[in-house]
Design a protein around this nucleic acid. Structure first.
Lengths: 122, 122
DNA sequence: ATAATATATGCAGAGTTTTGAATATACGAT
DNA sequence: ATCGTATATTCAAAACTCTGCATATATTAT
């Protein structure tokens, strides 16, 4: 029976404790997304987004998968899903309302192209 | 249906994301403790401990209760208990072993006095 | 009143995180 | 080979966090 490793857990939480990174993770709860999507969603410059993705990846929250010239990021596993559920869905005693994921399409990646075409055939 | 308040949640997590503060919270999971206890447990100077307690208090994780010249801190509510359970008891994919709370008595507060006397009658 | 004890607050230097900007890589298309 | 697109890395200045130290307050005991 060992004692929790407060350093480690603290470091993980530190990565989580950031509005933009939380928002990225929240977006990835629904589905994997490529960098360009997140760029559009967050309205932040691409290097900035890549940087946050790197931190999340290095902390083990997400994984990347190259697909053609795009890189898709998804949550690492179901444990991360539950953590995010716990953290984002029941906002402690504090402010913030319940659920309500962010939507967003409209970048030029293959995935969007597919979706748009599907809905938009002349 | 509103979207989570990432700023708020991020700020809460930021307070959690600190080894000493996690350790304090872990200690308070079992029972309320006075400052002097935590001082002994953490082996940190009293002003330092009080400062961390303040952050935890202001973030809504703990509450204080004056009792004579001591101040006892306890977790704010059962939601905090569950958060801590989730965070400290199943250490993500990361390192750290399972459970195993920290023990510690031996300061001169009334509570300790009681305990020690109870076990230690001549 | 005065002293002693328990806890809180304020402040500052060292260290770390954040974010923007420039640049690099990798890959597919021409 | 060259170009264009998607993503990654590097660096540095500003902002913020951490922690130690000095000091303040509040309560009880003498």
């Amino acid at each position: 029976m060992s004692v929790p490793n407060y350093e480690q857990i603290g470091n993980q939480l530190k990565v989580l404790a950031h509005p933009v990174r939380l928002r990225i993770l929240d977006a990835l709860r629904r589905d994997a997304e490529c960098v360009c999507h997140l760029e559009t969603l967050l309205e932040k410059p691409q290097p900035y987004v890549s940087q946050q993705l790197r931190l999340l990846r290095e902390a083990g929250f997400i994984q990347d998968e190259k697909e053609g010239q795009n890189v898709y990021y998804r949550l690492m596993n179901d444990e991360v899903q539950s953590w995010l559920g716990a953290i984002l869905d029941d906002p402690q005693d504090l402010t913030a309302g319940p659920l309500g994921h962010t939507q967003l399409v409209n970048c030029a990646c293959p995935k969007c192209a597919r979706t748009v075409t599907a809905l938009d055939v002349t």
